[in-house]
Structure formats: structure tokens, C-alpha cells
């Protein structure tokens, strides 16, 4: 039975005053870690365009523009050029902005926006360009915001702070806009992955593109408390009266674990980055996991 529509507990995004400072500190930490790992400075990410540094065998699905036709003609085997980028690569950061992301606290959209903001800042430091996409919304149309490296990340922050968890369209609606990801070297998908089919994620794989998923779940979803509950789906407005006792909680956690295991297996088989975390964790930990993992 549907009653009056309750308010989402954490629908809006609001960056704390110290958020930019925390992002800056995270940038330094990640940059130092990356330098230490690669030993080649901030622009060490190989990708399309830039100085030729070598060749490697072609993998099905890679951008044919990177194929070295001379080598193919001489050796009859496909190789792609490996270059050091000059102007930076392009990242896509897609956020699920549907109503279910308003579950919390801490709100899933809030934490997702914090992570996205940090990625924007980090991309700027790496001279990469970022395009932000947010699904859902009252009009169910994905919002887009391109962040140019030269512009700084203030605009990106402002865009993220405007977001409100609403609607029913999750990340899948962004993924279906294939052109969005056309030349993206890195794709970050952040959301609760509700309604997202694994095959849709697999369709993002292209050549050396990195696809990383961050599944955010609220504490009440990861560790439901014991007691009488009426569960409410903010996207469908459906309600379910189902008390939580120890036994039910165990069953729920087992089912959740099965679902996560599905994603983990998929990620391992197809070399995707996948991590599922609680919104109770600070965004720094989530981004470190997402970016460095």
C-alpha cells in the first residue's frame, strides 16, 4: 500500500567548507603514490595521441586509429602504437542520480558527488579532461558537464552540488548513450548499480580503456538493523512490511553477498575495476580505492 510519499533522507549534495582542502590533500597523496609506482611523472598515463614510446599487440575492440598499418603490412600481425600523451586523456565520470541514491545517511549521491569532485580535481592535475554525467533527475534526462583542464575544477564542483537524487533512471541510462564514452581512456561509474546489467558495463570496454565501478551502499543497506521495518523504494514508491530479525538479516546479507560476488566475478574475468563500499567511509578512502586499485 502506498502512503504519502516520504522525503528522501539524503537527496541533496552539499560539500562541506573543508571539502576543497581535503580534495587537495588527496590529490597530493594520489599523485605521490602514482609517481612512486610509475616513476615517470604526472603525465605517465599511456593513451591515444602523443610521443611514440613503442608497440604492443593489438587487442580486439581497440581503437583502430592506434593500429600501426606499416607493421601490419610488414609482419602481417596487428600492433598498436603506445604513446606518451601530450595534452592529457579524457575521462568520463558517470554518477547515478536516481532517487535510490538519496538513501542514507550518509547519502549515496552525496558520497558519489564527493568522489566525482575528487576525480575532477585529480584529472586536472594530470592534465586530463573530464566529462561528468549524472543520470536520473526530475526530467529523467542525464545531465552533462565537461570539465576542461584549463578551467579548474570549481565548475565541476558547482555542477555536482546542484544534483538532487530523483527519478528512476540509473547509470544504465547513461551507458545507453554510447557516444558519451567514445574516446574516453577512463570511465568511472559511481552509484548503487541498481538496475544496471553487467552486459551493459561490458559494452564499455574498448582497447586499453579502464572501466572502474564504485558501488556505494548506505549503512542501512549493508548492515540493516534489527527491528520492525517498512522498506520503501524511493524510485518505485513500493513499500514492504518486513521485520528484520537475526535470521532474516543473515539471509539478506547472503543475498547481497551473492549479488556483489556476481559483480566481482565479472570484474575479474573482464579486467574491470570494481569495488563496493559503504557511504559511511570518507570519500578519500573510496577514491584511493577507485583510482589506485
Amino acid at each position: 500500500m502506498k502512503g504519502a510519499q516520504p522525503r528522501l533522507p539524503a537527496a541533496r549534495v552539499r560539500f562541506e567548507p573543508d571539502y576543497p582542502r581535503r580534495v587537495a590533500a588527496l590529490q597530493l597523496r594520489l599523485a605521490a603514490a602514482r609517481q612512486s609506482r610509475e616513476g615517470s611523472g604526472l603525465g605517465g598515463a599511456p593513451g591515444s595521441g602523443g610521443d611514440l614510446v613503442g608497440f604492443r599487440p593489438y587487442r580486439p575492440g581497440e581503437d583502430l586509429r592506434q593500429l600501426d598499418w606499416n607493421l601490419l603490412a610488414r609482419l602481417d600481425r596487428p600492433f598498436v602504437r603506445v604513446t606518451r600523451r601530450e595534452a592529457g586523456e579524457r575521462w568520463v565520470v558517470a554518477l547515478d542520480g536516481s532517487a535510490s541514491m538519496g538513501v542514507g545517511p550518509p547519502g549515496k549521491l552525496q558520497r558519489a558527488a564527493e568522489c566525482a569532485g575528487a576525480l575532477v580535481a585529480l584529472a586536472g592535475r594530470l592534465r586530463a579532461e573530464v566529462e561528468l554525467f549524472v543520470s536520473g533527475g526530475a526530467d529523467e534526462r542525464p545531465r552533462r558537464y565537461p570539465v576542461r583542464a584549463r578551467e579548474g575544477h570549481a565548475g565541476g564542483f558547482a555542477f555536482l552540488e546542484e544534483q538532487v537524487a530523483a527519478g528512476t533512471h540509473g547509470l544504465a541510462s547513461v551507458l545507453r548513450s554510447g557516444r558519451v564514452f567514445a574516446d574516453a581512456a577512463r570511465v568511472f561509474l559511481i552509484g548503487d548499480l541498481g538496475g544496471l546489467e553487467p552486459r551493459e558495463v561490458l559494452g564499455l570496454r574498448r582497447g586499453s580503456r579502464e572501466v572502474r565501478l564504485l558501488q556505494l551502499l548506505a549503512p542501512s543497506e549493508l548492515e540493516p538493523e534489527i527491528g520492525a521495518r517498512e522498506w520503501w523504494d524511493p524510485e518505485t514508491a513500493e513499500r514492504l512490511r518486513l521485520d528484520v530479525d537475526e535470521a532474516r538479516r543473515e539471509l539478506y546479507l547472503e543475498a547481497l553477498e551473492d549479488r556483489l560476488e556476481l559483480w566481482r566475478g565479472l570484474a575479474a574475468r573482464h579486467r574491470l575495476g570494481f569495488t563496493a563500499r559503504s557511504t559511511a567511509e570518507p570519500f578519500e578512502a573510496l577514491v584511493e580505492e577507485l583510482f589506485a586499485g
Binding site: P6, L8, P9, S100, M101, G102, V103, K108, D192, G194, L217, A218, S220, E221, P224, G227, A228, R229, E230, W231, W232, D233, P234, E235, T236, E238, R239, L240, R241, L242, D243, R248, L251, Y252, A255, L256, R259
Partner: peptide, 27 residues
């Protein structure tokens, strides 16, 4: 006990549990 209304993005999981649980209908 008066149930507490709680929003979740994983209602499908709870619904699957309730489907195989006769106690869910007892209320």
C-alpha cells in the same frame, strides 16, 4: 512494534526474502 519506514535501493532483495517467508505475511 510500529515499523520504522526506511528507504532502500535494495528492495528487490527484501522482496525476494519475503517471497519465501510465510512469516512476512503474518505481520
Amino acid at each position: 512494534e510500529e515499523p520504522r519506514l526506511e528507504a532502500t535501493g535494495l528492495l528487490t532483495l527484501w522482496r525476494e526474502l519475503a517471497a519465501g517467508d510465510v512469516r512476512a505475511a503474518e505481520g
